[in-house]
């Protein structure tokens, strides 16, 4: 039986690496970079054998000709991001082996847990995977199992479904026929607008960010699901549904409050959240 050792959620903003690299970053960026360095150490401290990485795709790999709601990648290798993303944002590439046996076992176990995942034997991971992986596991030495979610092309599954899929993934990991230590890394974001009238330099709705991170921090699943509707998220910013990946993590954590969570509010771009649920609080001591 596999052991779920750590659940972690961070931002996948492709701007953030560049903001950190600036000669004189603003204080909130310095603090956020420190948060993410602590997250890196935290994940390393739990010594995972494999990382299940749950993130979205920005209409790069998957498109409206054939759009999966939830998909597990089971090709032997995962590589990204897309060339245009590296060109636009100057972000670093990432390469990882895929733990194919675990991916296949997850696909086989999932229907019993109430989820029929799509699967893919040929895919590329975009910045939603490569940015968090470069922060949390820059060594590129751990195999991953990528899980893609649709948060971009409506109809996007509702928050309740993201929560249920998270709960199912927890049961699937518990039932895996191996002794592996499994870490989960998910990426998303808070309020953000791209290509709409509210697009600006900072968060498109700091109040949404504060409220949701407060609810996540308290483990208040019921209110998060009630409030994180498509319409409410759209009103906060037209790409805000990326928040749903964090709702999925609340399900993976079985509705419990995270061990740590927080958010920084840079003036230059969107808010930078972090959250982590430790399987064993003493393991890092």
């Amino acid at each position: 039986m596999a052991e779920l050792v750590e659940i972690m959620g961070i931002s996948h903003s492709p701007n953030f690496p560049g903001q950190i690299a600036q000669p004189d970053p603003e204080p909130a960026i310095v603090e956020a970079a420190r948060d993410y360095e602590l997250m890196r150490k935290r994940m390393a401290g739990f010594r995972p054998d494999v990382l299940v990485v749950i993130a979205s795709d920005h209409l790069n790999q998957f498109f409206m000709d054939n759009m999966p709601a939830f998909l597990i990648g089971k090709a032997p290798r995962a590589e990204g991001p897309f060339p245009h993303e590296m060109h636009t944002f100057g972000i670093a590439p990432y390469r990882a082996e895929v733990e194919v046996d675990v991916a296949k076992n997850m696909l086989q176990l999932a229907p019993k847990m109430g989820v029929d995942f799509s699967f893919s034997d040929e895919f590329r991971i975009d910045h939603a995977f490569t940015v968090p992986l470069n922060f949390i596991r820059p060594e590129m030495d751990l195999p991953i199992v990528p899980v893609f979610t649709n948060v971009m092309a409506p109809p996007v599954p509702p928050a309740q479904r993201f929560y249920e899929v998270g709960k199912a993934i927890r049961k699937i990991i518990d039932a895996l026929p191996s002794n592996k230590r499994v870490g989960v890394l998910s990426s998303g974001h808070l309020a953000i607008e791209i290509g709409g009238p509210k697009e600006g330099r900072s968060s498109s709705d700091p109040e949404f960010d504060r409220r949701m991170m407060n609810l996540v921090g308290r483990g208040d699943v019921e209110t998060v699901i009630e409030e994180a509707t498509w319409d409410r998220m759209m009103a906060s910013g037209n790409v805000t549904p990326g928040f749903l990946n964090f709702v999925l993590l609340m399900g993976l954590a079985d509705g419990k409050a995270p061990s740590v969570s927080g958010v920084r509010f840079p003036k230059s771009k969107g808010s930078v959240p972090y959250m982590a649920w430790d399987r064993d609080p003493g393991a890092l001591a």
């Binding site: 920005h58 209409l59 245009h84 636009t88 971009m152 092309a153 791209i194 290509g195 709409g196 697009e199 037209n238 790409v239």
Partner: peptide, 12 residues
């Protein structure tokens, strides 16, 4: 934009 193009794609 008015016709409903995806704003994320339209931006890029």
């Amino acid at each position: 934009y008015r016709l409903g193009a995806h704003p994320f794609l339209l931006n890029g």
